[in-house]
Design a binder for these strands. Sequence first.
DNA 1: TTCCTAAATTAGAATTATTCTAAATTCAGA
DNA 2: TCTGAATTTAGAATAATTCTAATTTAGGAA
Lengths: 146, 146
Amino acid sequence: MNPVRPTKTENIRETLEAHGLKVTPQRSVVLGYLMSTDRHPNAEEVFQAVSLHLAGAISKATVYNTLNTLVAAGAIVEVSAEPGVTRYDANIESHHHFIDRETGRIYDIPWESVEPLCQTLGTDFSIQDYHVTFYGKALKHEHSPP
Amino acid sequence: MNPVRPTKTENIRETLEAHGLKVTPQRSVVLGYLMSTDRHPNAEEVFQAVSLHLAGAISKATVYNTLNTLVAAGAIVEVSAEPGVTRYDANIESHHHFIDRETGRIYDIPWESVEPLCQTLGTDFSIQDYHVTFYGKALKHEHSPP
DNA sequence: TTCCTAAATTAGAATTATTCTAAATTCAGA
DNA sequence: TCTGAATTTAGAATAATTCTAATTTAGGAA
């Protein structure tokens, strides 16, 4: 798959530093992997993918630690689709999600695609943010990677 | 707390049967508890609450089985708020959710409160359903139960 | 009523996702 | 080079959930 965002070492380093994190090989490769994909992987999938890049030289605990660190620093976000699995997304722009019910695949939906909602919820709630999850069937024809 | 929906035995039985399920004491008490609360409890909380009603005579496995059965039958729905915890809601009408970031409490938001969105997502997606999660601070002053 | 079978329930083992612990390693700065 | 703090690590521990295989329950047929 083509990287969704530029994945050059320079970008990875900049992103880490921009979020106040030291640059380490483990963090770089975890963040780099998340920036290279739009498939919203879970921790296990990150671990698998990243083990290749580092020739197995990363522990699962570090993957979990690093994902938590990146989330806490705001460099990535968690996505909850199905219960019981935490997925991760390096797209930290405000956006929504579309979940294909057949494949389970999650697509990013640009913020602007969804027209203003946030109508009155009465005076009972002060809304700070909102997120829309769409469910259905993706009609996109995906190209297989070369 | 006041029951959100009527909780009479008759209603519970009818709901179970309407969803093609046999009426058993365990199912009745699990469904009855969910119908009596609007707090979106998780499996553990259901188990605690229900153990009282049945004087401990229900196993945790049955709570999990029963919750899954009720979900499969469409008598209740799962709600994913934080990653890692599956919560349950006996309100099966289409509706949205508001999550109080301070307390973690989840409020039901009536479907009509949110104005039509579902604008164009291009021709890439066929939308079957959608769900909006709001985040913020609930301003409601809750009454303590008597 | 008694029997039968299928469904429901159960305890506890197993699995899975995740966090914790305590030790080892790395690394920036004095 | 030394030092202390941050990072990484393996593996143990925990938590949520599912699985297994046995037991109980319940409704219908005889």
